[in-house]
């Protein structure tokens, strides 16, 4: 077997998995804390990618898109939560699904009206447009390595924020027993606003990072949304650590599957999800039980 090829696929898998983590962490927290299945979360990823495309074509400075995606995502998430979602927490899941599905249509329609329906390539920033020699005969894309490092850094920040701060313990508590959080006198609305804003910002950041790795195209958010639901289920709803390990697992399985078992690659992650749902419905990485 070609070892450096395998090495490249493992790195691709990790990098893809880390990107999935950025999207899934928000999805799993929004589901775990507020009980909302936010189908429009993929649209946030799409908006982030198109933001990168627009910034790169206007200014040529792709890196500018990263802080803009984070700040824009925080603002957008906060506005969506305060203006729309908080009215739906006590509604039925069907209402929530209809709301978030309507948002997908709205965001895609807005994208179509403003930027059209063409596929666009986003060039890798010039300073990262080279390959890093990893071994004598194998080199790896510097941009992909940079994405890997940025995602790891964000994952570390998320982990510290969730596991080591009082706000983080409030978020975990709210994901577990929301009525008890109320009884302790904590204002759950602030927790919801924070979770939604941060989750949206991470999805937009992921979109901006992913833009140069693939084309920017209509409905790109939805293909990511579905694989991210697999991550959420495998990792256990509401668990950041679970989402992290599940995202790496899914990223690796999907990438290696496509490289070495292309005939069944499309099936493997879904089989994994079905297995988890059957035998460990609380997720592979859920603590306890």
């Amino acid at each position: 077997m070609d070892l450096s090829g395998l090495f490249a696929q493992v790195l691709n898998g990790l990098q893809y998995g880390l990107l999935l983590f950025l999207i899934s962490s928000g999805l799993t927290l929004i589901f775990g804390v507020m009980g909302v299945i936010n189908l429009a979360h993929g649209s946030m990823f799409m908006i982030g990618a198109y933001l990168a495309y627009v910034i790169a074509s206007l200014t040529g400075a792709l890196w500018l898109a990263l802080p803009l995606a984070v700040l824009g995502g925080l603002a957008m998430g906060a506005a969506l939560e305060a203006g729309l979602f908080r009215r739906f927490y006590k509604r039925e899941h069907l209402d929530q699904v209809l709301l978030t599905f309507a948002l997908i249509l709205l965001f895609e329609e807005a994208r179509s009206a403003m930027l059209g329906n063409d596929f666009h390539a986003v060039p890798v920033p010039a300073i990262l447009d080279f390959s890093v020699p990893v071994t004598a005969e194998f080199a790896y894309s510097a941009y992909r390595l940079a994405v890997l490092v940025v995602c790891l850094f964000v994952a570390l920040l998320m982990f510290l924020g969730i596991e080591r701060t009082r706000i983080g313990s409030a978020v975990r508590a709210a994901a577990e027993k929301p009525e008890m959080v109320d009884l302790l006198g904590l204002d759950a609305r602030r927790i919801h606003l924070l979770v939604f804003a941060v989750g949206t910002a991470l999805a937009m950041l992921a979109g901006a990072l992913a833009a140069p790795l693939q084309s920017v195209y209509p409905n790109m958010g939805e293909s990511f949304l579905i694989i991210c639901f697999v991550v959420v289920v495998v990792g256990g709803v509401g668990s950041i650590a679970g989402a992290f390990w599940a995202a790496l697992l899914i990223g690796l399985v999907d990438t290696l599957g496509k490289a070495y078992l292309p005939e069944i690659a499309g099936l493997v992650v879904y089989l994994l999800m079905a297995g988890v749902l059957l035998w460990r419905p609380s997720g592979l990485f859920a603590p306890g039980r």
């Binding site: 975990r172 508590a173 577990e176 027993k177 008890m180 109320d182 009884l183 302790l184």
Partner: peptide, 24 residues
């Protein structure tokens, strides 16, 4: 008034089933 505001008035409860956060 919302539950959390009542709690902020100095009313605390040890609920049936204890309500301990398992993951904390």
């Amino acid at each position: 008034e919302a539950t959390f505001r009542r709690a902020q008035r100095g009313i605390a409860v040890v609920p049936e089933g204890r309500g301990v956060f398992a993951s904390l």
